[in-house]
């Protein structure tokens, strides 16, 4: 199964399906929702390490993504990411953010398991995966 077919990736696609002019805002909103839940569980440091690694990996395809780690300040945590995304065409920004999210989630899943990851994402994004998607989502 190609990784892009995984339900958690489908969910990211759905989340990212916003009007192009709001792509950057929508992207940051997704990150903020997820970050607040994940930080509660694994702490600021845990989140920052995973985020830095995701950026590093995503830069291979999108070198323009900002390199610095998010600031501990919750309000400005994703300011740099937002600036990077806004400087790009909406489609390009959306694609880059999708890759960044997928990379982050994949690393998290590799560390704490797909099931627990999906559980946290459900809570963060409020998306009910309790249907047929759920089965795959928890594979």
């Amino acid at each position: 199964m190609a990784t892009s077919d995984l339900p958690r990736h489908q969910i990211i696609k759905i989340l990212m399906a916003q009007p192009p002019e709001k792509a950057a805002d929508a992207a940051i909103h997704i990150w903020e929702q997820m970050a607040s839940h994940i930080i509660t569980i694994i702490g600021e440091d845990g989140f920052n390490s995973l985020y830095a690694r995701s950026l590093f990996l995503s830069q291979a395809k999108f070198p323009w993504l900002s390199t610095s780690s998010p600031t501990p300040n919750a309000v400005h945590r994703f300011d740099e990411l937002k600036t990077s995304l806004e400087a790009q065409a909406p489609a390009q920004a959306s694609e880059a953010n999708s890759l960044l999210l997928v990379t982050f989630i994949e690393i998290l899943a590799s560390l704490i398991g797909a099931q627990l990851t999906s559980h946290i994402l459900q809570l963060a994004w409020g998306i009910n995966t309790g249907n047929s998607t759920n089965k795959e989502f928890q594979e």
């Binding site: 509660t40 694994i42 702490g43 600021e44 440091d45 501990p72 627990l116 559980h119 946290i120």
Partner: peptide, 15 residues
Amino acid sequence: INKINESIRFVNLSA
């Protein structure tokens, strides 16, 4: 895993 956040919540106090 089903108990996480349903009946068990982890909170990081480091900060």
